[in-house]
Design a protein around this nucleic acid. Sequence first.
DNA 1: GACTCGTGGAC
DNA 2: TGTCCAAGAGT
Length: 286
Amino acid sequence: MLPPLLDWYAAHARDLPWRQEDCSPWGVLVSEVMLQQTPVARVEPIWHEWLARWPEPGDLAAEPTGEALRAWGRLGYPRRALRLHACAVQLTEEHGGLVPADLGALRSLPGIGSYTAAAVAAFAFGIRATVVDTNVRRVQARAVTGEALPAPSLTVAETALAQRLLPVDPGTAARWSVAVMELGALVCTARSPACGRCPIQQSCAWRAGGYPAYDGPPRRGQAWHGTDRQCRGLIMAALREAPDAVDLSALTALWPDAEQCARALDGLVADGLAERVGQGRVQLPG
DNA sequence: GACTCGTGGAC
DNA sequence: TGTCCAAGAGT
């Protein structure tokens, strides 16, 4: 199944800016953090703005965190912007302003977990790293294990399988990983997989088994309406849109439950996403 | 391990 | 309309 998938990728891969030959490791790292839980279409324009404004880690490190938060826009999970900024600072102070070509060093950066470290190592430096994201998990579950969907959270067995499937040659391994991810994103999708145009349908265990339905533990949806998350989102949107500090009263007006709103704001301040200034006013951290 | 953490598009 | 989902990480 290796050659068909690599050939398919060569023919059908999307032309994404962070896949360009001249994209810097910093550009790859920024893209990977932005893409955590966020669709490509929403990331692309923001990625261009970030790379134009902060072409190197040192450029971002020189800014206050509030600028990163404002430029993050509505990508969601704004703590990622904070961690990206912290990344830039750490790269500047400890790595000469460069992204390290080392899995362990990458993993020690803020906001860089096992997936992102492997992805940057593989895609920016051609290192043979085991890249396991939600696409890889789903493709493996279907094509190899014969199940409709992977378990709710990553298992050791899945990582071991991905490692076993990974081609030996480092450059080929990196192309393989991005090809599996692309297949999961474009063909072997969660909702309605396009099995008819799948390059590895002949060797797919899920297909061979007659496409059995998912029978694992229930997948928990994330609550939203009325939660602290929704309230935090409203507050952050207000802070981003305001040119400077916002009155506390303007924030509590956004939410029916004043007590919950106050608690949400406390959380944002504790997380470094917001900052209290004098006279009951709040702003993005300066 | 179970939670928490944004946002918007697709169905 | 509500539910599911999207290149996860940190606690």
